[in-house]
Design a protein around this nucleic acid. Structure first.
Length: 393
DNA sequence: CCCTTCACG
DNA sequence: ACGTACGTGAAGGGT
């Protein structure tokens, strides 16, 4: 098996920086542990959901929120709810965040770095996912933290080689653009042709206000609705995501489809085609069989319907970025450039480029990614430059 | 080896 | 009445 080229290149990390971060986290975790033991009035393994549940629901008599297969759940949603009635859950959440990031990212990445080169060589797996995406393992570099401050500090440990900069190129709203293409929905196509903020546009339609009067909260809800479309949402899922009643969520979904009629037709057509043919297809014709959609069990059938909706969207995005990667790789080789393709994170590519190639690469990468597939709406790519992965904005 | 939890797109 | 948003990988606990 030929190794993927970017695996051979690897990505450089700053070992001293990560070691210091590891020590800092070790100290903070130790302090949190003692604080938790004091509040709980007992020592226990905080990392054990079973022992944590015993403390929360037996010893402290807090009210369970939901069950898992094996007992009462202590996941983030549950602890956030419980935090309103006791001081322990919030500290457990803090503990969880620090220990997760330390063990899964900081320490694991230090161990996997090549001692001579300080570079990390992930595997990009091409035959794992059902939708055609790549996956990444040992270590997974497609789920490096970004959403919290600490997460951003971990990203900063990934650094460009001497004389080089990182160039990241990410598709803007690629999956919703694919929905616009498949559905030919006039509102969605209009929004992308005018390069509007698509979540603000959805808020404006669903909540019936001028785009200028869309509040951050309205936009947040519209964004959840747009994601829900891609996932084949139901009212229950949207309600859970937004913390609203199922009736209210149902109202949002109905309003959405009242405005985006083309999207509604697209979803219905996709499902009925999947039932007739037994498979769904991406823009390029790649298929995923969906036997679940003919199941006698309603639950499994619904699952099949969501697969039927999501796969052409997610799969087409995966196809498009792969085409772009192939074309970019060929050009790097043919034009004898020193820039290297290091990472693919589903809708984003990261390159290591000598400083003198940066301007050329901006154009080359943006152009190849935006023209990898001709959709009926523009395909837009944003470029960012930085010395480390955390500083790419 | 399964379960739970949680990191990302 | 029921369970319910798509796709992944990894760590730690517990059997």
């Amino acid at each position: 098996m030929t190794k993927i080229i970017c695996q051979l290149d690897g990505i450089r990390i700053d070992k001293d920086y990560l070691s210091n971060l590891s020590k800092e986290l070790e100290g903070r975790i130790e302090i949190l542990k003692n604080k938790i033991y004091t509040i709980a009035g007992a020592d226990f393994n905080i990392s054990s959901p079973k022992q944590l549940a015993a403390i929360l629901f037996d010893k402290l008599k807090l009210k369970p929120v939901k069950k898992t297969k094996t007992g009462f759940s202590t996941d983030e949603e549950v602890l956030t709810i419980l935090a309103a009635s006791h001081e322990l859950p919030a500290e457990v959440l803090n503990f969880r965040q620090l220990s997760k990031l330390k063990s899964t990212y900081v320490d694991a990445i230090l161990e996997l770095a090549n001692p001579a080169t300080q570079r990390i060589h992930t595997s990009f797996n091409q035959t794992v996912t059902a939708t055609g995406r790549l996956s990444s393992s040992e270590p997974n570099l497609q789920n490096i933290p970004i959403r919290t401050e600490l997460g951003k500090r971990i990203r900063q440990a990934f650094v460009a080689d001497n004389g080089c900069l990182f160039l990241s190129a990410d598709y803007s709203q690629i999956e919703l653009r694919i929905v616009a293409h498949f559905s030919q929905d006039s509102l969605l196509i209009d929004a992308f042709k005018k390069d509007e903020d698509v979540h603000t546009r959805t808020a404006s339609e669903v909540f019936d206000v001028q785009p200028e009067l869309v509040t951050p909260e309205m936009r947040r809800r519209a964004k959840a609705i747009n994601f829900g479309i891609i996932y084949g949402m139901g009212a229950y899922g949207l309600a859970a995501e937004l913390g609203i009643s199922q009736d209210e969520a149902r109202g949002y979904i109905d309003d959405y489809f009242l405005h985006y009629k083309g999207v509604k037709t697209f979803i219905d057509k996709t499902i009925s085609e999947a039932m007739e043919r037994g498979y769904v297809s991406t823009f390029f014709g790649r298929r995923r069989h969906v036997p679940e959609i003919r199941s006698g069990s309603e639950q499994i059938r619904r699952f099949g319907e969501r697969i039927a909706i999501n796969t052409p969207i997610q799969g087409t995005a995966a196809d498009i970025i792969k085409v772009a990667m192939i074309n970019i790789f060929r050009r790097l080789k043919n034009e004898i450039l020193q820039s290297r393709m290091l990472l693919q994170i589903h809708d984003e590519l990261i390159f290591e480029a000598p400083e003198k190639e940066i301007e050329l690469m901006k154009e080359l990468v943006k152009n190849e990614m935006e023209t990898a597939a001709k959709l009926s709406v523009p395909v837009k790519v944003d470029i960012n430059i930085g010395r480390n992965w955390g500083g790419l904005g």
